[in-house]
Every structure is written in structure tokens, then in C-alpha cells.
Write a protein that binds this DNA or RNA. Structure first.
Lengths: 258, 258
DNA sequence: TCAAAAGTGTTTCCAATACACCCATGA
DNA sequence: TCATGGGTGTATTGGAAACACTTTTGA
């Protein structure tokens, strides 16, 4: 049995959707996961509609699972977008993308779906942190591509998705002290410089190396392991991992960076 | 022409609502604005549904205007509540309140409205700070009462409104450094002790008098005015007001209390 | 032996805290 | 003149920031 967009939509509450801003970190840059459509010029955030009988948080986890193969992702809502013109019918680029979405799902009756896509959507935006190395990005189906894009270099986006990403970034920066930055975005073992570079990428400014190191060590959340021999002609850095127990507690109070 | 709930509801998006947690401060306690219904045992937050052609933020402002007579209230959304059982049909107390609401609106056809109330609602919760002295609380209509309730002493509430208020309180405490606490919750002129007591009420703990005073003065956001002769046998405190310009800027960075 | 980067140390400055002291007020 | 509470001063502590010094690594 083929999955049908039309049948799915029939089980969902009209006018309600959710979008996920998935942050990943690699190549010393913060990235966002975007869907790209052949033939269409704009990209969009992975998202979904809300079935009558499902929790929204669960649907968000599902959306991410489909795109990344990951479970139990760090995920929380940060804002609900609801402006009057929030629909796939609002501008040319969005219409084009909606068209591709409808066309590329098999066995669907397009005319009926148009009404659905053209309504006003109130969309709750979620915010995820994942280790992009662990994510297995899926091409999903023909003409649809899922890929990492650096946040400093966003393509044209559908509806208000640019706004959503910017709001998410702001949220990330303001909440940095309360989020499991290192744990979620890095590998299990990492060097101090990797952790520092991550913080720098998020905050958008340089931090002092010595002070960063001392501060992190003093927090008592890092466990030091063996050295990492990089092959470079310099002192080999230690590898660290996170002491989960202490970490959880500390996140409540906030791990200070300003 | 009488306002009709049924006609109003016909113009609104099904399944979407908003609730307002309105904080006011008096008698050295933080209060929330609640609606109380004669005959029913539970209270509820002031809220509303979302008309197809209106912005949600605007509707929230309207809700507050109706209840308090105030305009341009400090207002922002903080969370969207959407669990599967979020309906007026979920428990006995909520059903009872929904019943009173339907009955007390004039010229309405009750049976039709039942479907509306019994659906699952995704509700975006807003968060407001107002000066309760300036608010003119309106009794609205018969059998419905609007009143201030201390946050430490909440009555039984409808659906998940208790949860909403607790989440709002948490938000208030975490965001205290970024919110116009003094400006919105106090009179235009206030003493340092009044400001301190407000912060203490929100944070739920005592602050050092001397340090609080010096810290606030150092921020450069307070303008000192004449002394306030209270009639008590002690030194008269100065009155202060807020330097709006400096204040706005500082709020961006956050006014530090931890 | 040298360059490069990691790890640690030092100094300065300022905010937070605790608490002491003085001052105005009206009984 | 005295109790009360408002305003200011001071000493201590600890973190933040800037930067210097030492150590390790492979060329």
C-alpha cells in the first residue's frame, strides 16, 4: 500500500502545522536541515501536519526521524507563527513548491489538495540539535532532496521559513546556557578546541582559549580521556566526554556564557 | 444588535485558540487575572478564538482590552499547548464551565455550539504584564466574574490552565532579566523598596537591600525625584521613575539578576 | 632545533555578597 | 532622644578578561 498525502491530510486538523529547525554542526559551521525541490527555486523546512489523534511533540520527533534516522532527538518548540497570510498560496515561490509536493506524492488527486495547501496555517516551530555525523539524511523520494545548509548562507525559502530560522537562531543564542550544546551537537568524544569552536560558531564571536578551557574544566562536566594524536607538529590535545549526571543538573541553573 | 457567540465562532478557525496569563502586582503579591463563573466550580484564563482574518497577537490584545480597558499592553506568546485531550469536554469541571459560557451568551443556539467546544484545541498562550491599579476589571456579563488571584493561591482551573499558569511563571522567572518588570507592573513613580519587593515576589526569595539599590542605580535606568513623605517615623524614601530610552536598550542585553 | 598549538599560570579589574555605618523622620 | 527604616560605605570573595609562560609534537 502506498502512502497517500491525500489520505494523510484527511486525518489531520486543518490549519495547523509544525516546522522543524534542525541544527547540526560540521566544517566549523552551524547548519540547518532543508528540503530542496527540483524544478522549484525555493527550499523549505521539514515539517508536517497534526493528526487529530497525535501529540504535536510526537509528530515533530517523527518528522525528524524520517529525515535523519535519529530517535530521541533534543527537541523543543520555541514559537508559533500564525500571520494572516501564512499559506502556501502567499507567494510565487511557495506556490511552486507546494505544486511539486503535491505532484510528487503518488496516487494523489491534486485538485482536492489545493484547498488544503492554500488555507492559512498556524504553525508551531520546533528547534532541534543533532549530531550531523550520526544523521543519515534521506533523499525521501524523487525530486525532493534533504540537505545541510550553513546558516550564514540560506537559499530563498518558502512562506516565512526564513523568519522562522532567524527566530530559532536568536533563541539558540539566548538560550545557549540552558541547552545541551556540546552533548547534542558533537561526537561523544571531542577536543576542547572543537567545543570552543562550536560555541564560537553559535555566538558569532571569538572566545579566549585559555579562559574557555579553565571555565569548562571548572564546571566539572567534562571527563578527560586519552590524547588525540592528530599527526600535526604540535602538542596533542586531550579528548573529553560529558559527565551526563552533573550536566543535567547544571543545565537547570544554566551554564554561563555572555 | 447583540453579540452572538455562535456568529463569532463561525468566523473563527476551528481547533485554534489563545489564552492570556495576565500578571499584575499589588499587596506585595503577584496576581493572575482569572474568569470565575457562578454555579461552576472552576475558573479559567481569559482567552479567545482566532478569526480567519485576524492576527493572533491582535486578538490577544483585544482579549486584554475587553477585560482590563487597557491598550498597548506588554504581551508576548510563550508556549503553545496542544495535547490530545485539550478540550472543554475533557473533565467534569471544564464541561460545567463550558456550559455556563454557552448559556450566558444571549441568542445562541446551544446544541450547535457543543460541537465547537468539544473539539481538540491547540492553544497559544500569551503572557502579559500590567499595572493592576490602571486596569479596570470588567464584570463582562451576568454570572461571569473577572478577578485578580494571587499566584500562590490558585483555585481549581479548567482543562490545563493550571499548567499554563505554572509555565508562564517559570517563563517570567527565567526571562526576568529581559522583561520590563518595573515599567509595566508598577506605577510611574515608585520607591526602591517597592521595586525590590516586586523582584522578590517574582523570584520568590529575599534580596539584599543595599546591593539591590546600588545595582539598580548603577544601571542608569532610574531617575530620582522628590522624596515620599509616608508619615512613618523614619527617613523618607526617594521616588524614582524609569528612563525609557536607556531601559529599552538595556533590555536587549538583559538586566542582570540571578 | 624550531614552529605550532595545547595546557597552565598570572595579573588586573569588576561584580556579587555580606554587613556596618550614618542619616532623616515623627513619635 | 529614640526607634525605625532609607541611603551609603567597605571589605571580601570569586569570576571574567587579557596575556604570558611552559609543554608537547612532528618536521
Amino acid at each position: 500500500m502506498t502512502w497517500s498525502l491525500k489520505k494523510h491530510v484527511a486525518k489531520c486538523i486543518p490549519g495547523i502545522s509544525l516546522d522543524c529547525v534542525v541544527f547540526g554542526y560540521h566544517d566549523q559551521q552551524l547548519h540547518v536541515l532543508l528540503l530542496e525541490f527540483e524544478e522549484a527555486k525555493a527550499c523549505c523546512l521539514p515539517g508536517g501536519f497534526l493528526p487529530y489523534d497525535e501529540e504535536m511533540d510526537y509528530v515533530a520527533q517523527e518528522v525528524l526521524h524520517i529525515r535523519t534516522g535519529l530517535n530521541q532527538i533534543y527537541l523543543s518548540q520555541f514559537h508559533t507563527f500564525s500571520s494572516i497570510n501564512r499559506s502556501w498560496d502567499g507567494d510565487k515561490a511557495s506556490r511552486q513548491v507546494a505544486d511539486v509536493i503535491r505532484r510528487t506524492w503518488p496516487k494523489d488527486d491534486v485538485p482536492d489538495l489545493e484547498k488544503w495547501f492554500n488555507q492559512r496555517f498556524v504553525s508551531t516551530a520546533y528547534f532541534a540539535l543533532i549530531n550531523s555525523k550520526q544523521a543519515w539524511i534521506q533523499p525521501d523520494r524523487e525530486q525532493v532532496n534533504c540537505k545541510w545548509v550553513p546558516v550564514q548562507n540560506l537559499p530563498p525559502l518558502v512562506i516565512d521559513h526564513q523568519d522562522i530560522i532567524e527566530t530559532a537562531l536568536n533563541h539558540l543564542r539566548k538560550q545557549i546556557n540552558y541547552l545541551p550544546i556540546g552533548k547534542e551537537l558533537l561526537d561523544q568524544k571531542f577536543t576542547m578546541i572543537q567545543l570552543q569552536t562550536l560555541y564560537e560558531a553559535i555566538l558569532g564571536r571569538k572566545l579566549d582559549r585559555g579562559n574557555f578551557q579553565r571555565k569548562m574544566l571548572k564546571l566539572d562536566i567534562l571527563v578527560r580521556h586519552e590524547k588525540l594524536m592528530t599527526g600535526a607538529q604540535n602538542k596533542a590535545p586531550y579528548l573529553y566526554s560529558i559527565n551526563e549526571k552533573v550536566y543535567e543538573q547544571l543545565l537547570e541553573e544554566g551554564i554561563g556564557f555572555n
